[in-house]
């Protein structure tokens, strides 16, 4: 079936098109959609080529910074404002792919992809969506959970992190680059030797990246000791079904998630905040 293409710089039009047609997709860098077209995916029927300066923008905004949905991983790596996301962005693909893959595309990437999104969840980012002629913000976690309403994402807003620090790791089968077996992002704030805030997200583990509330509860309130870390790691599997694919079984992914969370938090133990 032929694919329809719409070129526009009107976010309102793009928002209406994707809301009314489940076969319509806004084209980012093409790393997800072109792949689906090559695979003969008939669900992709209408590509929207949306342009506009806001979509490529990376800039400070009150209380944090904004990244446009069409900013590439390379754009993120070149932006000093987005320093918190440099390690996750660098872990996505190889140079050519990073020049193409976009932040907006990463939010909707098919699992096990979505490394940047995993970090954005741990940073408590908000999705900036088109609403009428203006913009609306909602927690990224809510946007990812609600896959029934199709909204146009203009970008993400990353709030200032205060004293919290992001710890990030990605496990792959091939080096230096590969798809995620499991991606772990943990943002921790500590005061007086105790963890006062923990946001922990996993990617590659179970469908879309998600926040692990059981892990967060286990980590919050006490010192970041080995026992706390071990207890938290046992909570990763709560309420999820780990995914199996050609790279790894669900069982293996969950076991690796526990190991990599323990290692990541083990290094956080020794770090200043």
């Amino acid at each position: 079936m032929p694919i329809e293409i719409t070129r526009t710089d009107d976010p309102g039009l793009a928002a209406r098109l994707i809301a009314n047609d489940r076969g319509a997709y806004v084209m980012g860098g093409g790393t997800g959609l072109m792949r689906r077209i090559h695979e003969g995916d008939q669900a992709v029927r209408h590509l929207i080529l949306l342009s506009g300066p806001r979509l490529r923008q990376i800039a400070p905004e009150r209380g944090g910074f904004f990244i446009g949905a069409q900013a590439s991983m390379a754009d993120v790596l070149a932006a000093p404002e987005a320093r918190a996301l440099h390690q996750p962005a660098a872990s996505v693909g190889a140079p050519a792919l990073r020049n193409m893959a976009t932040v907006g595309g990463n939010l909707f990437a098919r699992p096990p992809y979505g490394d940047l999104t995993t970090a954005l969840l741990a940073l408590d980012a908000e999705a900036v969506t088109a609403s009428g002629s203006g913009e609306d913000r909602r927690p990224l976690a809510l946007l990812l959970e609600d896959r029934t309403t199709r909204r146009l994402v203009l970008g993400v807003f990353v709030p200032d992190q205060g004293g919290a620090r992001l710890h990030y790791t990605k496990m792959t089968r091939s080096h230096p680059r590969g798809a995620s077996i499991v991606t772990v992002a943990a943002s921790l704030a500590r005061s007086g030797g105790r963890v006062t805030m923990a946001r922990v997200a996993f990617g590659g583990l179970a469908g879309a990246p998600f926040r692990a509330s059981g892990v967060e509860r286990a980590l919050t309130g006490g010192p970041l000791g080995s026992e706390t870390i071990a207890t938290a790691a046992e909570r990763i599997g709560d309420g999820i079904t780990p995914m199996s694919d050609a790279l790894a079984s669900g069982w293996y992914r969950l076991e690796m998630a526990k190991i990599h969370l323990r290692r990541l938090l083990g290094t956080a133990q020794g770090s200043p905040s």
Binding site: R7, G29, T31, M34, R35, L47, A96, N99, M100
Partner: peptide, 27 residues
Amino acid sequence: CGQGGCGACSVRIDGQLRLACLTLAET
């Protein structure tokens, strides 16, 4: 591969390294 995994189609677009198989021709 047609999936962005092998790099055999690497080209430069406006000086930037890109994968031709994942680039929509219109763009």
